[in-house]
Write a protein that binds this DNA or RNA. Structure first.
Length: 483
RNA sequence: CGGGGCGUGGCUCAGCCUGGUAGAGCGCUCGGUUUGGGACCGAGAUGUCGGAGGUUCGAAUCCUCUCGCCCCGACCA
């Protein structure tokens, strides 16, 4: 706990500048987003945190459906033999897999793995369902929990069990699979910007960072408030790797028998952590209106009998806002207004609406926006459409602010000296040409802790030589220390 | 998994070195006064001191083991 000066109204939150990690944990705890559970590495997502996740889910799910995907549900358990079918896949996930060895009081003949991801089980079922090119494409998604045994965990950012969405598709041609992979990447990027107000860099992962078993992996990478990067979503072109391992075959238009081309892609509850670390400040959470469980909180102000004098009018305004499609809550608890202000700021509610007798007399209300802390007076008449606009403005402002932050924390380096200076200086992205060698990548990581986050698809052509060695560069890579 | 730190009421922590009836602030409950930026007064409730073993007449305190959390590194959505 850190005592604050009088100007920041919240106590028990460590200032960001003092200790970013602690600040993050304080916000998660104080805003009641999540709590530690009795199980190591597993958190309980509390109602407020879960409400944010539900809004994220809704926004993403809508886009998946719009682009032709259907939801389904596949089992939590996967027979060990299935997971081991794709060699690179097993190797990648083996250290993180949890096993079920007993059931019904007896030892199982074949161990079951608790899914760390579901390519194996989707692949197995796709092999049964696909016979003809007419069965393609198959475009499925599932919202599920997965388990990966992690050594170091942090709420939302890395937990042993986490919630996510995983899309699994099968296509007739390589081109279609690549189109799907890239389309999803674009969709993730667009949702990140529009809904989470979290700018991301779209790009391809290096060979060493790609998904185990994929042909290639694309990711969206966001920059957190402490200058570290967060992988916020991945989209994999699986090629025919899983199709061959699971014998997912179909008879093509030319009568030949071929393997399907697969993709898989996912975003997780990690996005909640991304929102916290992108927008939050020393007073707590700052939520983009699109994912704020309460977009407006109404706080009645009054002396003795505010319940009689102010509350009825507050309820009318609440009804007006609800009718306008705004998520609004009225805080009529017996607490002092100042206490409520702090409490809702800590929870990141975008707009606070204060209404007291003075306001009712003048037929206006007091408004305070969370992002800029600006206060203003608005006429009661037409308050709903005005707040609607204000919410849009806050959403846009948060994105702009995050974009500006990323600009300030993105540097270019063409020599290794410049690179190291940049990494030691202002934390953030450093864009540099790279030769494509895993050795260079590994050495840079050892020496600076920075990794290649990705290589932007629409990035500039590199030119010149690798930032680490003197071989010609093959790509322009975005480096950063990452979560 | 290595290095470091920490586990005492819901939260933040004191007490441990030097063993002897478990404490503070905040929060919570009740009553009252209050209410436009985290109010005040009064009265209360809340603890197997993370867990297990040991040493001792006696352990929050000493010893051993163990579990969990945090920070820094190696692996990952």
């Amino acid at each position: 706990m850190a005592k604050q000066d009088k100007e920041s109204f919240v106590t028990e939150i460590t200032p960001r500048s003092q200790d970013f990690s602690r600040w993050y944990l304080d916000v998660v705890r104080r805003a009641e987003l999540a709590d530690y559970s009795p199980v190591k590495g597993c958190m309980v997502i509390r109602p407020y945190g879960y409400a944010i996740w539900e809004l994220i889910q809704q926004a993403f799910d809508k886009e998946f459906k719009r682009t032709g995907h259907q939801n389904a549900y596949f089992p939590l358990f996967i027979p060990e033999s299935l997971l081991t079918k794709e060699a690179e896949h097993v190797e990648g996930f083996a250290p993180q897999v949890a096993y079920v060895t007993h059931g019904g009081g007896e030892e199982l003949e074949e161990k079951l793995v608790v899914r760390p991801t579901s390519e194996a089980i989707f692949g197995t079922m796709y092999a049964k369902w696909i016979q003809s090119w007419r069965d393609l494409p198959i475009l499925l998604n599932q919202w599920a929990n997965v388990v990966r045994w992690e050594k170091v965990t942090r709420p939302f950012l890395r937990t042993t069990e986490f919630l996510w969405q995983e899309g699994h598709t099968a296509h007739e041609t390589a081109e279609e699979a690549e189109t799907e992979t890239r389309m999803i990447l674009d969709l993730y990027s667009s949702l990140s910007h529009r809904v989470l107000a979290m700018p991301v860099v779209k790009g391809q992962k290096s060979e060493s960072e790609k998904f185990a078993g994929a042909l290639r992996t694309y990711s969206i990478e966001a920059l957190m408030g402490d200058g570290r990067a967060l992988q916020a979503g991945t989209s994999h072109n699986l090629g025919q790797n899983f199709a061959k391992a699971f014998e997912i075959k179909f008879q093509a238009r030319d009568k030949s028998v071929q393997h399907v081309w697969g993709t898989s892609w996912g975003v997780s509850t990690r996005l909640v952590g991304g929102i916290i670390m992108t927008h939050g400040d020393d007073s707590g959470l700052v939520l983009p209106p699109a994912v704020a469980p309460h977009q407006v909180v109404i706080i009645p102000i009054g002396r003795e009998n505010w319940r009689e004098t102010v509350l009825p009018r507050a309820k009318e305004i609440q009804a007006e806002l609800v009718a306008a499609g705004i998520r609004v809550t009225l805080d009529e608890r017996d607490e002092r207004p100042g206490w409520k202000f702090s409490e809702w700021e800590l929870r990141g509610v975008p707009i606070r609406l204060e209404i007291g007798l003075k306001d009712i007399e003048k037929a206006h209300v007091m408004i305070a926006r969370r992002d800029t802390r600006e206060k203003m007076s608005l006429p009661m008449d037409g308050v709903a459409p005005r707040l609607r606009e204000l919410l849009d403005d806050i959403q846009q402002n948060l994105l702009n602010r995050a974009l500006a932050f990323r600009e300030e924390h993105t540097q270019r380096a063409s020599t290794y000296d410049e690179f190291k200076a940049a990494m030691d200086g202002r934390p953030g992205f450093v864009i540099s040409p790279w030769c494509g060698s895993a050795d260079c990548e590994a050495q840079i990581k050892t020496e600076t802790q920075a990794t290649i986050r990705n290589m932007p698809i629409d990035g500039q052509s590199p030119g010149g030589t690798c930032v680490h060695c003197d071989k010609p560069a093959v790509a322009e890579a975005w480096f950063a220390k990452s979560y």
